[in-house]
Amino acid sequence: MNALGRRSLLQAAPFIGPFLLLYVGLLIYPLIDGLALSFHRADPFGGRAFAGLENYARLASDPVFGQALGNTFKYAVLVVPVLTAITLALALALNKPGRTASVFRGLFFSSSVLSVTIITLIWRFVLTPDAGLLAEAWEAGGREPVPFLSQPDLALLAVAVATIWWSIGLPMMLFLAGLQQIPEDIFEAAALDRANRWTTFRRITLPSLRRTVVLVVMLQTAAQLQLFGQAQLLTAGGPGGASRPVVLFIYETAFTRWELGYASAIAQVLFVLILAVTLLQFRAGTSRREP
């Protein structure tokens, strides 16, 4: 390196050095170490024995992993379309000036600022059969309360509903921002052409929101693939693993059974999945498809 290069590097070091040090030490190194860990049998005390592809082979035939992976897809399929539709509808209804719309916007966003542990506390006592709000309503109607959180076919759905309630704010705001970008004169032209509401929505609003829809679906899919706290705290993944997502499986494998190598292999698979979703939808967002 020439003297000029060395001097400019010395000049830049105090600015980018501190961050880079932490970034490499606490993100890049763990990323590589995690990959290495997945090829080892490892215990929490630092003992590691090389195991080749053993963890991955085990993964392929582990029914518990298969179930957790299936559950994770179910969460994504249940939450993402419903959440996208609800938040788009809310944004369309609330894209208005004035106090009323503003109050509604603030209200629908408010749940997003709460932490997952507050959300689960609130929803546990909406859903439990012995003290829940829904149980009280059911009883008032003269019916037996439903044990939403402990019934195999309802537990996953219950966690999904709480998740939707929690996640409504951000996509709604993204859609509102997207709607603000559409020039008003297109709508004026449509009104002059006597286009009805449905036609206007289908021909103007929806195509203009294409990028926002892709963004919302991408963010939410990536978020639901990483669903963790809601399931851990509301159902503990049960009953019989019926609502256990992959991240909860990673957590249990690493921190209750202390199989760090195996847990790392699961984490790698999830990482690839999330990366694939991101890339897929990045492509969908950038390619222009003509109608």
């Binding site: 390196m1 290069g5 400019s8 590097l9 000049q11 830049a12 600015f15 980018i16 880079l20 970034y23 606490l26 993100l27 890049i28 190194y29 763990p30 990323l31 170490d33 995690g34 860990l37 990536a222 990483q226 991240v247 990673i250 690493a254 760090l260 847990a263 790392s264 984490a267 790698q268 999830l270 990482f271 999330i274 990366l275 991101t278």
Partner: peptide, 27 residues
């Protein structure tokens, strides 16, 4: 600032945006 390796380092930082917490939390 202009310094050797700036572009490569910035790309390295950008790549970190795609890394979910699950991929690094155990190590």
């Amino acid at each position: 600032l202009e310094f050797p390796g700036r572009r490569a380092l910035f790309v390295l930082v950008l790549l970190g945006l795609a890394v979910p917490e699950q991929a690094v939390i155990l190590p």
